[in-house]
């Protein structure tokens, strides 16, 4: 296969240039700036690891990191459960399955900011009215505490992304050969056994992809966070991405924010890569 001639590189050139200009160069520059006292315009001193050491003492950053981890664990589980559940539902022989697919996928087409504001209205306005009507005190005052803010974000994210994950599962579910399920049925396997021992192992590659997608998305969430709670009340629902933006653009500590971003990048990369590696090992080949 001749693939290293001039044409090859020429075709690649636009992509390499674009990727280099907007991803590679800024990443390297950012890495460099995180060691300086860069303020967005100029830098005067080389500070070495100072920003990184300061991170360890930054309670607000650490608590936003912890919040993000909790949030990610919960949303990854919920998203995959709901994604798979919905996929199983719409791959049944239902008349309305096409309509349902569209409906479940729809939230994904709305931007995170808009969804955030819509759900803010639901949590604050609709929930409190419902609570009053039904006499459930727990529905009042949503988003006024860290806990309700947390669950608000989880609900919003799950609602938005479950349809997308559903699509991935549908693709894998539909590629399972009918004869395998039939053979299991003939052998006397119950529906649950068929799911557990035939379907489940065969959709494992979908788990790898969905887990990767959900994990990396839920770690990096920003717009939903901004629109729904804006980190409030008292910064208790501030996620890492928001904390970084706040440090860089509100506190004007560009280099420090950059250091946080580098740590965040490494953190997400390690988790995502090891997750893919681990899941890959568990997949079965058909």
């Amino acid at each position: 296969m001749r693939n290293k001639d001039l044409t090859f590189w020429l075709f690649l050139a636009p992509v390499i240039l674009a990727l280099g200009a907007v991803v590679v160069i800024p990443l390297l520059a950012g890495f460099f700036y995180s060691f300086t006292d860069w303020n967005g315009l100029t830098f005067n001193n080389f500070l070495g690891l100072e920003h990184y050491l300061r991170l360890l003492d930054d309670g607000r950053f650490l608590s936003s990191l912890w919040f993000t981890i909790q949030f990610s664990v919960v949303t990854v589980v919920l998203l995959n459960v709901f994604g798979l559940g919905l996929a199983l539902l719409v791959t049944q022989k239902l008349k309305s399955s096409n309509l349902l697919r569209t409906v479940f996928f729809m939230p994904n087409l709305i931007g995170g900011l808009i969804l955030g504001f819509i759900w803010q209205f639901i949590f604050i306005g609709v929930f409190s009215d419902l609570g009053e009507l039904l006499g459930i005190a727990g529905l009042d005052g949503w988003l006024t505490t860290g806990t309700t803010g947390f669950w608000g974000l989880v609900i919003l994210t799950t609602w938005q992304l479950a349809g997308y994950i559903m699509i991935i599962y549908i693709a894998y579910l539909q590629s399972i050969p009918e004869e395998l399920l039939e053979a299991a049925k003939v052998d006397g396997a119950s529906p649950f056994q068929r799911f557990r021992n035939v379907t489940f192992p065969l959709v494992a590659p979908a788990f790898t992809i969905s887990m990767f997608l959900t994990l990396s998305t839920s770690f990096k969430i920003y717009d939903q966070n901004l629109a729904l709670t804006d980190g409030g009340p008292f910064n208790s629902t501030e996620m890492v991405a928001m904390n970084i933006v706040y440090t860089a653009f509100s506190s004007n500590e560009m280099a420090y924010g950059q250091a946080k971003a580098i740590i965040f990048f490494v953190f997400v990369a390690i988790i995502a890569v090891s997750q893919v590696y681990y899941n890959k090992k568990k997949e079965v080949e058909m």
Partner: peptide, 21 residues
């Protein structure tokens, strides 16, 4: 055909460069 494609690809990357500048 190859030459044509080369020219197109070349033009595309040039265009990108021009946009940057």
């Amino acid at each position: 055909k190859l030459t044509m494609m080369t020219i197109i690809a070349g033009a595309a990357s040039l265009g990108l460069l021009a946009a940057c500048g």
